[in-house]
């Protein structure tokens, strides 16, 4: 694999990354702009961050978003892990293929449709829309991501470990709690982080599921941008980019580290 880093490769790589990240970089730069005019640079300043902290509407929205993200990702992790466990472990049962297909369908389902379906459900069962409905809607669409992450770990999980636990006197639940869960924990954690990030920046589904008193940050940003982009919004978006980046990087580090450790263990086993 001694490929030369050619002129062509360098150009395509640069173009690709510019295409991906230029908008965000501009946004971040202009969040430090001292001018009120978004597109005219007038010197460095952090004053918009200060004003952001004084803006109650934004802070409320941020609080709603955080609550929703924590609750829905936790719920999604529990449900997604359970679903993954059953689908990987329960072996063949009637409708298994149908079930696993159905778990993954929301991954490719247009968000508008998921959102609309949730809205119809909430209306038909007479549920008042608010934080709880957003939590439910987000749980629904993030749990399949958790399920994908966790089941990809579970398929490589040595089933005889669970059998050994049963053999040594564990009930099936105890075996899951004291053997399976600690071993797949990195995948569960990265599933949670993924769900958290997805919930944090969802706009479409939240718009369908939200009520008047439960505006999330992405919704707030979207509605204020329609009245014109303000530097405050840039500052806010920069903060969100920061949080999402940290979340995604942590998730990938957690899984990468556990993969590396697993590989080391396997190598140690092979050497023996």
């Amino acid at each position: 694999m001694n490929r030369r880093f050619s002129w062509f490769n360098a150009t395509s790589l640069t173009l690709g990354f510019v295409f991906l990240y230029l908008p965000m970089i501009i946004l971040i730069i202009f969040s430090f702009n001292s001018s009120k005019l978004v597109t005219v640079w007038a010197g460095f300043s952090t004053k918009w961050y200060g004003e952001l902290l004084g803006n109650k509407a934004f802070l409320d929205a941020a609080w709603v978003t955080l609550k929703v993200a924590v609750l829905s990702s936790t719920l999604a992790t529990v449900l997604g892990t359970m679903a993954a466990y059953v689908l990987v472990r329960a072996g063949r049962f009637a409708g298994r293929t149908l079930f696993s297909g159905m778990i993954y369908a929301p991954l490719v389902m247009p968000e508008v449709i998921t959102g609309l379906a949730m809205l119809l459900l909430f209306i038909s069962i007479g549920m008042d829309r608010g934080v709880s409905t957003i939590v439910l809607a987000h749980t629904t669409f993030t749990m399949c991501y958790v399920s994908v992450v966790v089941s990809s770990r579970l398929v490589t999980f040595d089933k005889s470990l669970e059998e050994a636990a049963l053999d040594l006197g564990c009930t099936p639940f105890d075996a899951f709690r004291s053997v399976t869960l600690p071993i797949i924990a990195p995948a569960v954690i990265s599933g949670w982080l993924l769900a958290f990030t997805l919930s944090l920046d969802d706009l479409v589904i939240a718009s369908f599921a939200a009520g008047p008193s439960s505006t999330t940050l992405p919704m707030k940003i979207f509605s204020s941008v329609r009245l014109g982009v303000s530097p405050e919004i840039n500052a806010l978006s920069t903060l969100m980019i920061g949080i999402v980046t940290v979340g995604v990087i942590t998730a990938s580090l957690v899984s990468k580290r556990s993969i590396a450790r697993q590989r080391a263990e396997e190598q140690a086993a092979a050497r023996a």
Partner: peptide
């Protein structure tokens, strides 16, 4: 069920719990 049987099995793959020490593996049962 397996967890109520007076038998214990040593697995072909050993099936040691990787997250537990030798001591805890032996104490597990």
């Amino acid at each position: 069920p397996p967890n109520k049987r007076a038998t214990n099995m040593m697995f072909q793959s050993y099936a040691l719990f990787p997250h537990l020490t030798v001591w805890d593996n032996i104490a597990f049962g």
